[in-house]
Amino acid sequence: MRLHPFTALTAAACTAVATTAAASWPLSVAVVVATAVLAARARVAGRVLFAAAVTMAPLCLSLLVLHGLFFPEGRTVLAEWGPARVTAEGLEFALDLATRTSACVLVLLLFSFTVSVPDLVSALAARSVPPQFGFVLASTLTLVPAIAARLDRIRQAQEARGLLLRGGLLSRLGALRLQMVPLVLGLIDDAGIRAQALEARGFGAPGPHTIFRHVEDPPRQRIFRAVALVLAAMAVVLRLLASWPEVASP
């Protein structure tokens, strides 16, 4: 079954909200595992996990240092070096926060790596979001691949004229320096021409715009989205009630 982009977005957002509200590391770990499995099935596991690792590694490390070593409420001391104390409570708190954040980051990354950008743009336009917003969104989501493709073309042109690229980091950086000026100038030049073409094709014209690309939105997915939103809202309410018991019992 092909997921409507809003269904995938709702599922990702509600999972992130519910996981945050639940604040339970076993649940967070379960979400992480489930996301990894889904990513593997969608054949994007490598990219999702790499992006997650780059984002999460510094955060997890700082959580471990901050809460693992210095947790004022910590009672069960496991080890001690001067002012730094490793406490079981601190470690549990760090683990809880790290798994919870990882779960949120992973589900959102999974969404962004699997969503079909054209489907998302069409779905937004179908909800009367201005086409300019869709264009900016699509351009942003495709900016990195577009820049990579242009850099690749410049590199090919330079290599075809004798630029030798060796494996070394310095050599790569040197080559990148040679490619930056043409990249930026090329992007500016492109933007000017593109603007003329877009204007001429009526992109900036006022009045209603229609959508050619049809994205199926089956009723069952609509129901799923409604239920997911209600459940996520309930999770937040329950969390609030649990955090402030005095509100629940007057």
Partner: peptide, 25 residues
Amino acid sequence: AMLSTVRSTVAEELAFGLENRGTPR
């Protein structure tokens, strides 16, 4: 230079100018 660059198929690229004029699907 004529292309919108944000449409993913030839059919959608062809339809881009019509979309902007509000042509029924």
